[in-house]
């Protein structure tokens, strides 16, 4: 058995003149949570739907659980779970009935009680789907995706539209899946989500992977530190090491790859002139900054 759940080389997909995915490589290890992050239209969903078997690639090698998803085989679908970008569930069945229906599609389903428990819908078991809130429907959607006890679960923007508390709840649930030994491949708009959940993050932009690694590696690749302090003057008044500072809301903000020298000069300069450097802060660049830098303006 390969240690890779997903192996993609040179995947390409175009819609007419539009290049949705421009030749990407992906390697998702078994048992990890892998996040594909990028702005709308970057190619996340197209990539996911090719891996799920919903679409065909124009070019490239795609192996998911050592199978070719484009062959659309029932034996393949028995091993994966899919949660699509938009939730769509028959409205007139209850939570239990819906999960039972999906359990019936698989040879070795997870027990009903466990599924209800994993997604935290115990109190709504007998409710009709149409009476559930949007967040509850999304959780039911995940239970349907897990019904067959899949080796690999695809989650396309699992928390888009959630309030902060619901997102934390969803994260707990997704971490729980990992502890069950599942491989999870998810897409998201949110770097904090990728950071909180993923073992590996790939940033996709205009159909290309622009960065990939663990959250720490991604941050290490961008060795910038952000130094800022309250300052009313202009760049001309600052020492040379701080000449590149920008000014936002009455603060000077300096991004530097050499914080030691910058701070040394800055504090020396401040002491000499009796400046207090009020509100001085020194922070490593956040993953969000890395992402926004790489994903470009579309991500904002």
């Amino acid at each position: 058995m390969s240690e890779l759940a997903v192996e993609v080389r040179g995947l390409r997909k175009t819609y007419g003149p539009v290049v949705a995915v421009g030749g990407i490589d992906l390697s998702v290890r078994r048992g990890e949570i892998f996040a594909l992050i990028g702005p709308n239209g970057a190619g996340k969903t197209t990539t996911l739907e090719i891996l799920e078997g919903h679409r065909r690639a124009d070019a490239g090698h795609v192996h998911v659980l050592e199978e070719d998803p484009a062959r659309n085989e029932i034996a393949f679908k028995e091993r994966i779970g899919i949660v699509l970008q938009s939730t769509s569930i028959q409205p007139y069945l209850t939570v239990e009935e819906t999960i039972e229906q999906f359990r019936g599609y698989y040879p070795a389903p997870r027990p009903l009680d466990e599924l209800v428990d994993i997604v935290g819908l115990e109190a709504s078991r007998k409710k009709l789907v149409r009476r559930l809130s949007g967040g509850q429907q999304r959780r039911l959607d995940v239970a349907m995706g897990l019904a067959g006890d899949p080796e690999l679960l695809f989650l396309d923007e699992p928390t888009t539209g959630f309030d902060p508390a619901a997102r934390r709840g969803a994260w707990e649930m997704i971490r729980g899946l990992k502890s069950l030994g599942k491989t999870v491949l998810l897409t998201t708009h949110y770097m904090d989500e990728a950071q909180a959940l993923a073992d590996t993050v790939a940033i996709i932009r205009n159909g290309l992977i622009v960065a990939e690694g663990t959250p720490d590696e991604l941050r290490a690749g961008q060795a910038e530190t952000v130094i800022s302090f309250r300052f009313a003057g202009s760049a001309a008044g600052l020492p040379p090491a701080a000449a590149a500072a920008t000014f936002e809301n009455g603060r000077a903000v300096l991004r530097t790859v050499d914080p030691t020298t910058a701070l040394h000069e800055l504090t020396g300069w401040a002491k000499e002139r009796g400046e207090a450097l009020e509100g001085l802060s020194v922070t490593p660049v956040s993953l969000e900054d890395v992402y926004l830098g790489l994903a470009g303006d579309e991500a904002e």
């Binding site: 899919i82 769509s88 028959q90």
Partner: peptide, 17 residues
């Protein structure tokens, strides 16, 4: 209507023939 809502697509991703 089921197709437009995505219900058909959801089912198509399962082993149900």
């Amino acid at each position: 209507i089921s197709r437009d809502l995505g219900i058909l697509k959801r089912v198509r991703g399962t082993p149900l023939p």
